[in-house]
Computed example of a mutant assay.
Amino acid sequence: MTLRSALWFPLFDELADPAVVVRLAAEAEEAGWDGLFVWDHVRWREPVRAAADPWIVLAAAAAVTERLRLGPMVTAIPRRRPTKLARETATLDRLSGGRLVLGAGLGSDRFGEEFSRTGEELDDRVRAAMLDESLAILRAAWSGETVRHRGEHYVVDDIRFEPVPHGVPVWIAGFPGKTAPMRRAARHDGYVPVNLDHPDQLAAAMDTIRGHRADAGASGPYDVAVSLLSDADFAAYTAAGMTWWLTDFDPHTITLDEVRGVLRDGPAAR
């Protein structure tokens, strides 16, 4: 399988200007990159001051590109209403001609206190239940069938969501070795390992995910998106299961010039 490459960065400070990111998207497509994925946060700890909304930025990027895969990587679904997210994802996927990838996870209050400062749920176990319930609602909404859902956290009473997307892959973020994220990732279309230190960790995680998928009778393409510095051992990570390389930047020091430098160096395939 060919390794694909995506620019992946936070929409902070210099990169909080949507016009700047739109230009980067056009340049990335011209330079042969396969994707452009952005962080989804409402705030971050200092020295970061400015942040942009990923959905509006991605919609603008979709309008000036034709081939790039686009998406939030990752969005903390438990702080979003699933019915609103169903509309947003379908609309963005249609606008892009079927190029949306939805990166999904629990989120964390650790780096920006964006849950505690906004009254969102802080308990990881509760957010995990909210995540699974939301993903079930999204799948149902994307099918075009009438959604009838009464769960612990959400209600959707006889709503049909049209137009439907072309097909939105869901990649699940999680720590390698954690049981629940591994099982969740196996139920969807891809995996985004968090805080990965070594290719052996990825290989072990993929063995677990493949086992869960085999037990469930799951088949079809499966993507594994790993954030690495450009001088990492790509061969070892690819052998362990990586299908996408996500560029790695420090959110506290990232600059537009730094992103442009990586962009111009080109994707891993070069």
Rank of each mutant, 00 (worst) to 15 (best):
P251N: 09
R148T: 15
A239N: 03
M182L: 14
I137V: 13
A141N: 05
G177K: 04
F234W: 02
A173I: 05
V192G: 02
E152L: 13
R160F: 06
H198L: 07
P169W: 05
T247D: 02
P181I: 03
S227F: 01
P176D: 09
L229E: 09
F234L: 12
D157W: 03
D207L: 12
H212K: 01
G174E: 02
A141K: 01
T179G: 11
P251A: 12
T253C: 07
F249H: 07
R160E: 15
G220A: 09
H188G: 01
I172Q: 00
G167V: 08
R148S: 14
V224G: 00
G151A: 00
H188P: 04
R160M: 14
K178S: 15
H198G: 05
A232E: 11
R213N: 11
G144R: 06
G241V: 03
D157H: 02
P251K: 07
G177C: 05
S143M: 11
T208S: 13
H252Y: 15
Q201E: 15
T146K: 10
V194L: 15
A205C: 11
H252E: 15
T208E: 15
S219F: 10
F249R: 08
A180H: 13
D200S: 14
D157R: 04
V156M: 07
T179V: 15
W171H: 08
S230A: 13
A203H: 02
R183V: 14
T146P: 02
M206T: 01
A236H: 00
A180K: 12
G144Y: 01
P165K: 08
A204W: 00
V170R: 00
L138I: 03
Y154C: 06
D231W: 07
Y237Q: 07
R213M: 10
D158Q: 13
I159M: 13
H153N: 09
D233R: 08
V168N: 04
A214H: 12
W171E: 08
A225M: 00
Y222T: 06
G177V: 04
K178W: 12
L196D: 09
G190Q: 10
G151T: 05
G211Y: 01
I172M: 10
G217M: 12
M206V: 06
M182S: 13
T238D: 09
F161I: 07
T247C: 04
A216W: 11
T146Y: 08
P169S: 11
G174S: 09
A140G: 08
A214T: 14
F175T: 13
L196T: 08
E162L: 14
G177P: 00
